[in-house]
């Protein structure tokens, strides 16, 4: 049986748009397959790996555990919302590259979004506290150390008035 369809309107990376979706379509699949936001990655589809993390009204959520219909009326931010211009990266993206905080890149968009959320909401976390806050996203490559470094470095960049406005 084909599922029910619904029309939804939501804001993605600052742009409002409407689409018709099957009600069982996950938010992750909606973002990837309908909007070509390929920074949303499917690593486990059962809410453990965190690679599909997006910001829903500014808070990190696992988009494989939501249905697109549930995002109707909400704001979503994906890594593409920070910058898609490789010559003009967001300071957090810069920090990840400078600190070699990515290898295969599969967890990277999720880690970057989580970093943005932490810097915005949680102030001066210690390295140990940063680790706890990153523990919901698995990285299989880096051993995390450089990701923690990138969070610290990005925080410094963002607190620098020269770049904070971006």
């Amino acid at each position: 049986m084909a599922g029910d369809m619904r029309s939804i309107t939501l804001t993605i990376n600052g742009r409002q748009l409407s689409r018709d979706v099957e009600t069982r379509l996950t938010l992750a699949d909606f973002l990837r397959d309908h909007l070509d936001l390929t920074g949303v990655h499917l690593g486990c589809e059962h809410g453990v790996c965190g690679c599909c993390t997006v910001l829903l009204d500014g808070r990190s959520v696992r988009s494989c555990l939501m249905f697109a219909v549930q995002a109707d009326g909400h704001e979503i931010e994906t890594v593409e919302g920070l910058s898609t211009d490789i010559d003009k990266l967001h300071p957090i993206q810069e920090a990840f590259s400078e600190e070699h905080a990515l290898q295969c890149g599969f967890c990277t968009p999720a880690m970057i979004l989580r970093t943005k959320e932490l810097i915005t909401n949680d102030g001066e976390l210690s390295r140990e506290e940063i680790r706890e806050q990153l523990s919901g996203i698995l990285c299989r490559c880096t051993g995390y150390q450089n990701i923690v470094n990138a969070v610290v470095s990005a925080r410094e960049k963002m607190h620098d008035p020269q770049v904070a406005g971006r």
Binding site: M1, G3, D4, R6, T23, R24, E45, H46, F67, V69
Partner: peptide, 11 residues
């Protein structure tokens, strides 16, 4: 790993 079809209500 995709959910099966269901009737969806969000009252």
């Amino acid at each position: 790993m995709k959910p099966p079809p269901f009737a969806y209500f969000d009252p």
